[in-house]
């Protein structure tokens, strides 16, 4: 699903965010990406969503070579990727329902289909009764769950999350991670960038560790519990 082939990312000004990164995440796999701030986690996610392009090496998503993808095809790639942000990134002047419906409207779904799918996604994250609320009236955890509902509403094969539990307390964080695991269980590939070792050490998934822009370790999250 995600394949990095000796990928370098150098920003204008000379800062090298990623160097020689290679890994392969299979379809249906769930993996965590960890490392200190500035280790290159965000840069790596940006390359996957084509917010940035690699300076050297190749990135494949779902078999598609991103370095050959023309700009006008980027929107269609992004529709295959559900992205969950650290800050929820909801549109504050629209209701929860409208926020979750946005990816479907962008993809041109029929209104009746939109309603059905939005309700299914909101039900999934347990916010079916808040569909008419505005994001500002929701708690941090609820806002994050709306963000997740929006990311999965058009059933993308790949789910990316950048510090999805960054602003949440441990109890809520556990709940959010549970949601991701559930999506993974029905076949969605999931890649989550996080530095919450406490939380992920209690789960059993693949763990990629970045340090200074290099992939220094490729193992299991359970190893964290041992070393801790």
């Amino acid at each position: 699903m995600i394949q990095f082939d000796n990928v370098n990312k150098r920003y204008p000004g000379g800062h090298e965010a990623l160097s020689g990164v290679s890994f392969h995440i299979q379809s249906g796999e769930m993996a965590f990406l960890t490392g200190h701030s500035g280790a290159g986690k965000s840069s790596l996610l940006k390359l996957i969503a084509l917010i940035e392009r690699s300076s050297r090496g190749q990135v494949f998503i779902d078999g598609q070579n991103l370095s050959r993808l023309k700009s006008r095809h980027i929107p269609y790639l992004r529709r295959k990727i559900g992205i969950v942000f650290q800050s929820h990134s909801l549109l504050l002047d629209r209701t929860v329902f409208d926020n979750v419906a946005l990816p479907l409207i962008i993809a041109g779904y029929h209104p009746s289909e939109v309603g059905r799918r939005v309700r299914a996604a909101l039900d999934k994250v347990g916010l079916l009764n808040r569909d008419k609320a505005y994001p500002i009236t929701l708690s941090g955890g609820e806002q994050q769950r709306v963000g997740i509902a929006r990311a999965v509403v058009n059933r993308p094969p790949l789910l990316l999350a950048d510090e999805p539990t960054g602003n949440l307390d441990p109890e809520l964080s556990k709940e959010i991670m549970g949601l991701f695991e559930e999506f993974n269980r029905v076949g969605v590939s999931v890649l989550i960038a996080t530095h919450d070792h406490d939380l992920i050490s209690r789960l059993d998934h693949r763990l990629l560790t970045l340090s200074g822009g290099r992939l220094t370790h490729d193992g299991r999250t359970t190893e964290l519990a041992v070393s801790a």
Partner: peptide, 14 residues
């Protein structure tokens, strides 16, 4: 809460 909901499967859009 989670168990009573339907799983969402990935599918080709549209």
């Amino acid at each position: 809460r989670k168990s009573r909901t339907r799983p969402i499967k990935p599918e080709a859009r549209g």
